[in-house]
Design a protein around this nucleic acid. Structure first.
Lengths: 230, 230, 230, 230
DNA sequence: TATGAATGAGTCTTCATTCAT
DNA sequence: CATGAATGAAGACTCATTCAT
C-alpha cells in the first residue's frame, strides 16, 4: 500500500529484508535506478554537500525532480528518511571498514594502516561519506550521531579498545596512546584530509592524488611527524 | 545610534574598530558584563552545543533572558551575528594558537607539539571552541568555514606550508607528509579527541584527564602508533 | 462500468436503484459479504467512533484492508461516500423508527413510548447509529444534517407535528409542549443516554442494562422527574 | 515575551491568574476589545458554527482579520487554543450553571427546573454554547469532551448523582430514573431544542420565543408528555 | 535601550484524488 | 477489479525580521 519502510526507533535493527522488492520489478533486472534509491542518493548528496539541517526536503525533491509530497510517499517523515539513510547507506559502508584488526592480529601498524586505508577507499568510492561523517557523526552534536549511537551502541568501539590494550600489553603499540581516543584520533587524521582532498579535487584546486594522501596518512601513523630516516 | 557592527559580506575585513564604544559608557568603566557580550557568549554556547543551524535566535534570546527583538537590536541580522562572533570571539582564540613555529624554528617536533598543545589549551579554556570548530569550520560545508575563508583567505595556511616544506628540505620532517594536509591532519588528531573528552567530562563518563590526552596526542605526533621503545 | 452510484448534490433523491448490481454477480448468489458493503460498514464504524471530519479515507481503507484508491473506485468522492451512507445505511434505520404514531393513534403516551423504544432498539442494534446521529445529524452543524435536510426535507417532521397538535387538541397531551420541539426533545432524552450507555458498556464501566435505560426513559417521558407514586 | 498562556495538559488547573494582564493596558480601562479576546471570540464563533474539526486556524485568522501566524503568536498550538477556550470561556459559563441543587435542597422539581433554566439562559446569552456543547462535549467523541474529562474529572457528575439518589430515597423523585443518566437526559431535553431555537431564530424561520421554550422544557420535566390536567 | 505585536516566507506533513497498468 | 505511484492543495507551525512605542 505504501512503500515506506526503514526502521523507526530501532524497532527492526538488522531486520534482514531491508531492501524490500516491490512487485513487478525483478531483483536486479533493471539497470534504471529505482526511484526510491534515487531519492536516497539525492538526499545523501545534498545532506553531505550542505549539511542535514540546511537541507529542506523540498530541496531534495526539487533536485530529484519530484514533488515534496512524493518524498513523504516513500519516507513518511524526515526522521524516517534519516533512519533509512543510516540503515541502507551509511551502515553498509561503515561495515565495509571492519575486519582490519582481525587480518593483522599481531601487527598493529599494519592493522591500523589497513583500517585507515579502508577509510580512504570508502570515502573515495562514496563521496558523500567523509563530509557527512565529519559533520553529522563525528561531531558530538551531529544529527546522525545520536541516532546511530542510540541504534548501534558502543560495541564496536569497545571491541577496538580491547585490541588496542592487548597490543599495548604486548609492547607492540605506543603505550602513551589512550585506547579510548585512538579511534577518534585516526578518524580525524584520515577523514579530515580525505574530505579536503575531495573538495579540492572537485574544485580542481590541487594536484594531489589519493595515493599521496594514503602515503601521508600512513607516514603519520607509522612514525608521526619526525623523520625516522635521520 | 544602533550598536550593530560586524561585517556584512566581508565588507570590512580587519576593520580595526571591532569593539565599538557605545556612548555614555566609558571604556572599561563597568565591571558588570556588557549585555552584548552576554548575548555573544550565549550564542556561542548554544551554537556549539547544538549546532548553528539547529539554534534559532529565539533560543539564544530565551537563554540570555532577553527578547528576540533585542538580538536584532544588537545584531541586525542572523548573518551579522555570525560575523561578529567570528571577529570578536573566534579569531582571537584562533590567533592565540599562532607563534609555535617561530618559537621552534629548527625543531619541527617541538613546534608541532607546541601547536597541538595550544589547540588543547585553547579548547579547554573555551569549551565552545572545539565542537564549533569541528562542525562549522573544519567541515568543508561548515557554516563558519565559508565566511572565514572569504574573510581571511589562506595566508596562514600557506605560511605554515612554507615552514613544513623547509623542515622537510632540511631533513627534519617526515618527507612523506604532505605539507598541504599536515595542518588539517593535526587538527583532526587533536580537536576530535578534545571534543570527545569535553563531552565525556561533562557527562561524567570518563576518568581521563587533559594531561593524558596531551600525552596521547604528543605520542601520536612524535612517533605515530608504533612503540618506539621496543 | 464503474460501480459508483449514490447521489451527488441530491441529484437523485429516492433514485430507487440504490443497490446497483455489478455485472457477473447474480443477485443474492454470494453469501460472502460484498466488498462495497464492507467498506460502508467500516466507514460507518470509524465515522461514528471518531467523527466524520476526524476520519480520513485512508483510515477507512486501512481498517478495511484495502487501498485508498479502492475506496475511490467504489465511491468516486468522499462526498459521495457520505451520500451512499445516508441512502443505504442511515435512511433504512431511520425508516424503521417510523409507524409508532399510526399504531397508537389515540394514546400519545404509548405512541411516544413506542417511538423512543424504537430509538433504543435501533441504537442497540446498530452501534454506529446513536453517536453518529448526535454528532452529525442532531447537531445543527452536523456534516450529515445538511445533506439529509437537503435531500429529505421536513415532511416527516411536519407530519409528527400534526399528530402532536391533534393530541393536544384532544386534551391527551401536555398543552405546554411545543409541537415543533417535542421531537428533538425526545431525541435528546433518548439518544444521549443511549450513546453514553453504549460507551460505558464498551469500556465496561457500568452495570446498567438497556432494560433499565428503557425504564428510565419511559419514566421521564410518562411523568417527568417527579414521583407520581407519592 | 510571548503572550501565550493557558494550561497545557492540566498543569495549572484552577491556576487563578488565568486572565493575565499585559502591561500598559490598565485592567478594564479600555472599551476596545483586547485582540486576544477577539481571537477567542472568533474561534468560538466559528467552532460552534462549523464544528471544531471543520475550522482551520486560517479561517479564524481570516475572520478576525489577522494572519495565521498571529494566532500562533497568541496560542502556541491549536491544542492550546482549545485549552484556553475551555479555561477562559467554557468553564466560566459552565460554572454559572451550578448551584441549582443547593438552592432547592428539598424540592427536586424546582431544582431541576432551575437547572434547565440556567442551561437556557446561558445558551441564549452565549450563542456559541449550545451548539458547541452538543457537538464537542456531549458527543462521546467530541473534541472537547476528552480534554474536559481529563482536566476536570467527574466530580460534578458524581455530586449530582448523590443529590438524585437522596431525593429518590426521600420519595421526592421518580424512582425509575437512573441517577447516572438523569443529567445527560436533561442536557438533551434542554440543549437540543435550545440549539434548534437559536438556529431557527437566526434564520427567521420560527415564531417561537424563549419563554415558550422554557415552558416546554419545564412541562416535560415536571410531568412528562401526558396531560396532567386531565 | 528594549519590547510587544505582527507578519511573510518557508518547512513538514496530510489527504483526497487521479491515472496508468 | 485493484493498486502503486504521484501530486495539488491545504494545514499547522516556525522563524527571522520589522516597527511603533
Amino acid at each position: 500500500m505504501s512503500p515506506q519502510n526503514g526502521s523507526k526507533n530501532s524497532e527492526k535493527i538488522a531486520s534482514g529484508d531491508q531492501k524490500r522488492r516491490r512487485p513487478g520489478r525483478p531483483a536486479g533486472a533493471s539497470k534504471s535506478v529505482d526511484k526510491r534509491d534515487l531519492l536516497l542518493d539525492t538526499a545523501l548528496k545534498l545532506f553531505s554537500n550542505q549539511g542535514i539541517a540546511q537541507t529542506p526536503l523540498s530541496a531534495i525533491a526539487t533536485e530529484a525532480g519530484v514533488t515534496p509530497a512524493m518524498l513523504h510517499y516513500y519516507f513518511k517523515t524526515r526522521e524516517q528518511l534519516l533512519d533509512v539513510l543510516i540503515d541502507e547507506r551509511y551502515m553498509p559502508v561503515r561495515a565495509s571498514m571492519g575486519g582490519a584488526f582481525e587480518m593483522h592480529p599481531n601487527d598493529p601498524v599494519s592493522a591500523l594502516t589497513a583500517l585507515t586505508q579502508k577509510f580512504i577507499d570508502a570515502s573515495l568510492e562514496h563521496p558523500w561519506f567523509a563530509p557527512l561523517w565529519i559533520r553529522e557523526v563525528l561531531s558530538e552534536t551531529g544529527l546522525l550521531k545520536q541516532r546511530i549511537d542510540a541504534r548501534f551502541g558502543t560495541k564496536e568501539r569497545e571491541a577496538a579498545q580491547v585490541w588496542i590494550r592487548k597490543w599495548q600489553d604486548e609492547g607492540r603499540l605506543n603505550p602513551d596512546i589512550e585506547p579510548e581516543f585512538l579511534f577518534i584520533s585516526l578518524f580525524g587524521l584520515t577523514l579530515l584530509p580525505v574530505a579536503r582532498l575531495q573538495n579540492d579535487l572537485r574544485s580542481g584546486s590541487t594536484s594531489l592524488t589519493s595515493e599521496r594522501l594514503s602515503r601521508h596518512i600512513a607516514a603519520l601513523l607509522k612514525s608521526g611527524v619526525s623523520n625516522r630516516e635521520s
